[in-house]
Amino acid sequence: MKKYTERLYNGIIKENPTFVLMLGMCPTLAVTTGAMNGLGMGLSTTVVLVLANLLISAFRKVIPNGVRMPAYIVIVASLVTIVEFIMKAYTQDLAEQLGVYIPLIVVNCIILGRAESYASKNEVLPSIFDGIGMGLGFTLGLTCIGIVREILGAGQLFGHQILSLSWFTPITIFVMAPGAFLVLAVLVAVMNIVRSKMEAKGKPLAKPSGCLTGDCSGCGQADLCTGKSGVQETVAAADPQADKEGK
């Protein structure tokens, strides 16, 4: 039992995909115009993540190593299609708001990342809990960012006006595209401070991986993305500054 709660703790707090690992930034920027959208996107990603982890873990001995990435993509894409149809049937407004970002869950790096680094190596039950933990962590991150943007940008929370417009002038830019970049920039800066504080205490946080840092080591898509090993080095060689800054 402890193993399972550890997985949940790991996903929600210790390796939170949004705050600590900085994964899945495209949906994070795009759908957090409000708390509700963030929550909806987070939960639908969670559903896909849990089911994908379950299936990939169950089939991990059957899928040949050479074609595992295409196999994972087919599994994830099928699940995303199912989730998309369910959302279109039962939560039409949300589905319309999220639009193209629902099918784009397929290329969310958290899902393939967990498949590659956890589900393909572990038993079914821990993989499910890993999916729940990571998914809830992602949901938490998206909802928090959504709450900040919605309050500053419209004075609302989950669609309810909480700051009276009689004295509060909404900073509309926060619910528009530039606000997403600004909020994320501040978040990254705050996390940088937290990171250095924790390091000084001797309890370093998990390293951020994913596209934001240009470090592909933690990304499940790295294998597919770089096509074949060596490309990453070629890019790094063509881009010597990347190498320097990475260190």
């Binding site: 930034m25 495209c26 920027l29 795009a30 790096c109 595209a177 596209c211 240009g214 890019v235 881009d239």
Partner: peptide, 10 residues
């Protein structure tokens, strides 16, 4: 917000 990864990475 599509293609953020290469936009920031490369």
């Amino acid at each position: 917000f599509l293609g953020i990864c290469p936009f920031l990475g490369v």
